[in-house]
Amino acid sequence: MNNITLGKYVPYNSLIHKLDPRFKIFAMILLMVGVFLNFASIWMNFIVYGILLAIIITIMLVSHVKLSSLFKQLKVMWFMILFLLIINMMVPGNPDLGFIQITSSWKIYLSAIYNTLYIAIRLVIMLAISLVLTSTTTPLELTGALEWYMYPLKFIKFPVHEIAMTISLALRFIPTILEETDKIMKAQASRGVDFQRGKLKEKIRAIISLIIPLFISAFQRSEDLANAMEARGYNPQAKRTRYRVNKWRTRDTISLLCILLFFTGLLTLVFTRFDLVVWIGSLCA
């Protein structure tokens, strides 16, 4: 069960945990955009990816996010990466980058391999970023920040608060439902269900014996929750105050400046088509 709780908030007292969630969301978006920028050459791309990965791993270490949880996810991704490689090899690539001649009529373009590698690295980086965000920020903080970002939408009568409440309720019940899943799995295991082994037909039965009770209890729970909220006079239109107010501190400003500087640097590299390999080459010559 523990593998499902990936990205669950883990209470530590690190710098990353203490940063303002609004900043954290912003930084996440910038870094993710950074991952998808296309630099001057293949090598330049890999260099930037390397830097990004190094930064993220440092952040992970600082915020006590386990590197092993990332590797666990990679295990699942292997199949997808292989599939991508095969698809990429089937479609004609860019012959300029060279190719490996396998038989007289079939060649593998190197660009196919590069493309696959790009996607794999991008996925790893994105996964790592979101892992850091969710394991250092409580769901409540996250929705608070989301609500703050959606605030302008209020002027076009977009139900910002309702959406934020829905999201925060959904996030709030993830651990509960995981717990419930664990409980039902155990109860069914006591009745002889084997969730790991068995033929396809048995596996389907096992899953049904889990899903039906889970749905029923989820519906029951949401009904209870709605009733409890109504009983306490919940009114979505009402103006609400917060117990925990996000306070923007100096460390948030400094972090924001750093990330902006880094992102501007990346953009400059893109627009000037700067290539480190060529540059070093020209220096040596």
């Binding site: 419930e180 409980k183 039902i184 109860a187 069914q188 009745r191 049904i208 039906i212 009770p213």
Partner: peptide, 10 residues
């Protein structure tokens, strides 16, 4: 038999 075993019915 778990506590509140009703939830295992399906």
């Amino acid at each position: 038999v778990f506590q509140f075993p009703e939830y295992q019915l399906f």
